Amino acid sequence: MAARTDLFQSPDYYLVDELLTEEHKMVRDTVRNYVKKEISPIIEDYAQRAEFPQQIVKQMGELGCFGPTIPHEYGGGGLDYISYGLMMQELERGDSGVRSTASVQGSLVMFPIYAYGSEEQKMKYLPKLASGEWLGCFGLTEPNHGSDPSSMLTTIKDAGDHVILNGAKMWISNAPFAQVAVVWAKDDNGDIRGLVVERGMEGFTTPTTHGKWSLRASATGELVFHDVKVPKDNIFPNINGLKGPLSCLTKARYGIAWGTLGAAMDCYDTALRYSQERIQFGKPIGAFQLQQKKLAEMITEITKAQLLVWRLGVLMTEGRATPQQVSMAKRNSCEIAANIARDARQMLGGMGITGEYSIMRHMMNIESVITYEGTHDVHLLITGMDVTGFNAFK
């Protein structure tokens, strides 16, 4: 397949750029240029072959896309949450699978080690994860327990200086290539604990998940634990209960809120350019009312989402954002991205389903993103519970 030239121009209808610092714009433009140079020309081919471009791990590590909010002393970027969001926006503008790789590494693996790990754990794992020398994954979802992680069946049993880990995790991004896994399991008291499992530990395997129609350029697998001996030194000392994994998910959902906005921008930009060039009935299709309606609605939703995630980024940096606010933004960005991808695909007609354009790939990817890290409906109920005070989950 011929490499595609990336002509992307970022929409900014309300001059949101004026709310950004020079550093924010520099970070964004650096990642945008990386995506144009290294991701866009190859990603369609990798997605068609359902293959993970392993070279991007080192590249994103060098770029600082892994754990950008983690302090410098542990290999992170020491940046604020708007910088992090802009990185995720640009990566997902390239492909949701690429952004997933970075989200898992930074929010689901590095964040819990930084927040809940011992000093020894931080020094051992964080610099290697930040540089991309190591890839990590996050084990929470199980074959029978997705939206209800408190019912997990994976266990650790005390065995002296180590624990014995048994169970299985499913739908795990990065699993087939990961050197380390942050895993959540129930201890002898039934309390949920986090621990780091390393590749090579006997009884630990990571079978690849095949047959996906979505996130095809992302590596997905299972984590299977059969009497795995894990040193007690690998257990996070500073967290107990479901708060641990849920706090990680809040960080990842924040990145998704920005990321899916990037996918929406790419679909809009592609459809806008196509509408100005494609001639039917003697004029560009962008001159017809129904096509203008689609484009006008797309840019309106993108603009609203840009302001929503920017404000959320300010609150995150100030330490004032609530998980419920993050849920609203994650759900909104996923919804507008799904709708914009669908409308953009229609505007391109038959060309919209081909790999010559990015839209159908984004459209399929968003179907995963709208489900993982809390489904569309679960986030709706999180907001509902927050505004009414009633828990509809039980």
Rank of each mutant, 00 (worst) to 15 (best):
V314E: 11
V314F: 01
V314D: 02
L315E: 07
L315F: 06
L315Y: 06
M316H: 00
T317R: 04
T317D: 03
T317G: 03
T317L: 03
E318R: 01
E318Q: 09
E318I: 01
E318D: 10
G319W: 00
R320T: 09
R320H: 10
A321G: 04
A321T: 05
A321M: 01
A321V: 04
T322I: 08
T322H: 05
P323R: 07
P323Y: 06
Q324E: 15
Q324D: 15
Q325Y: 07
Q325M: 05
V326F: 05
S327E: 02
S327Q: 02
M328Y: 15
M328L: 15
A329I: 06
K330W: 03
K330Y: 07
K330V: 05
R331W: 08
R331L: 09
R331M: 13
R331K: 15
N332R: 11
N332Q: 14
N332H: 11
S333T: 10
S333H: 05
S333Q: 03
S333F: 02
S333M: 06
C334Q: 00
E335F: 10
I336G: 02
A337K: 00
A337F: 01
A337R: 04
A338V: 08
A338G: 09
A338K: 07
A338S: 13
A338D: 08
N339R: 14
N339K: 10
I340W: 01
I340K: 04
I340N: 05
I340Y: 03
I340E: 06
A341I: 05
A341Q: 07
R342Y: 12
R342W: 11
D343G: 12
D343K: 07
D343E: 08
A344M: 03
R345H: 11
R345L: 08
R345C: 09
Q346S: 14
Q346L: 11
Q346P: 02
Q346C: 11
Q346W: 11
M347D: 02
L348S: 04
L348I: 13
L348H: 04
L348Y: 06
G349L: 06
G349I: 10
G349S: 11
G349A: 15
G350M: 14
G350C: 09
M351I: 13
M351D: 09
G352F: 04
G352M: 02
G352P: 00
I353S: 15
I353C: 14
I353W: 12
I353Y: 14
I353T: 13
T354K: 12
T354R: 11
T354Q: 07
T354W: 13
G355L: 13
G355I: 10
E356W: 14
E356S: 12
